[in-house]
């Protein structure tokens, strides 16, 4: 209920300037105790100052993931967890990574800017709703989920991914977070929901390192179309890999672009 109030205040413009302050006091009775284990020693994200680029995303994503050992999917889809982290624990990080443009006065005096700023805050500081799309935008959830979805697939499904061998557990996280467009295109289309497909898509992108944004988009579009008729879960690892690599290769060739 308190999160709804916070959102309300952002939407109405009342609290926009709070999001320019390093410290804001929230009522203690608005917070409930959680049983989620946090390794707070580990929870130290890297940032230099405002306007932080995405260059530390991978390192920060792994740091955040390792700071929450045993966090389940159900817990990690609870908007209250991520809203608390962005507003309190990781407030400085959110300031650095997703800074607001303009001063409090500038925001207050410009209704158009107010609406843009409110949308920006609702996207990156909150995570309400029943969709993975909203979790992909919250400043903290968008770090945890890509690591969780790609971490050592051979541990999640030893038989299916037996051929991968136990290598770097973040091998596929590194590919997913290597380009903003890979992250957006792959997860935006719901492909992250099927772990086998996600990992195989990332394998294709790993092999085709120089792939460009347009080519990734074309590949994802073609793959989505392909998946509308065929469910690859019934395929063997080899069959799935052949199918996805064939769609990917075809999409790139059709665009007539060199890698």
């Amino acid at each position: 209920m308190y999160v709804a109030e916070l959102r309300d205040k952002v939407r109405s413009g009342e609290s926009l300037c709070d999001y320019l302050k390093r410290e804001v006091e929230y009522p203690t009775d608005a917070v409930i105790e959680s049983t989620i284990k946090i390794d707070s020693e580990k929870l130290k994200l890297k940032y230099r100052g405002t306007g932080e680029s995405a260059s530390n995303d991978l390192e920060n994503a792994i740091t955040l993931y390792e700071a929450f050992p045993g966090l389940t999917e159900t817990q990690a889809s609870d908007s209250r967890l991520w809203t608390y982290l962005t507003h309190v624990t990781l407030r400085d990080y959110v300031f650095a990574r997703w800074p607001l443009e303009g001063s409090c006065e500038q925001i207050k005096n410009d209704s158009r800017k107010q609406a843009i700023v409110a949308d920006f805050i609702l996207s990156h500081w909150f995570a309400s709703g029943g969709s993975d799309r909203l979790l992909r935008r919250n400043a903290a959830a968008r770090l945890w989920w890509p690591v969780h979805l790609t971490h050592a697939p051979w541990l999640r499904e030893p038989e299916f991914f037996a051929d991968l061998g136990a290598s770097d557990p973040y091998r596929f996280t590194k590919i997913l977070l290597s380009m903003e467009s890979i992250y957006a295109e792959v997860l935006e289309r719901g492909l992250g929901r099927d772990n086998r497909i996600l990992i195989t898509v990332l394998e294709f992108l790993e092999v085709n390192k120089g792939i460009k944004r347009d080519q990734i988009r074309s590949f994802m579009k073609e793959l989505n179309l392909f998946l509308s008729v065929r469910n690859l879960s019934l395929l063997s690892r080899k069959g799935m890999k052949e199918a996805i690599f064939s769609v990917g290769g075809g999409a790139i060739a059709e665009m007539g672009l060199d890698l």
Binding site: A76, D132, R133
Partner: peptide
Amino acid sequence: AVYTVEVECPSTFYRKL
């Protein structure tokens, strides 16, 4: 051929056949 039950939960990035 098989009967399939395909479960999807958009809140948790979950899809399983």
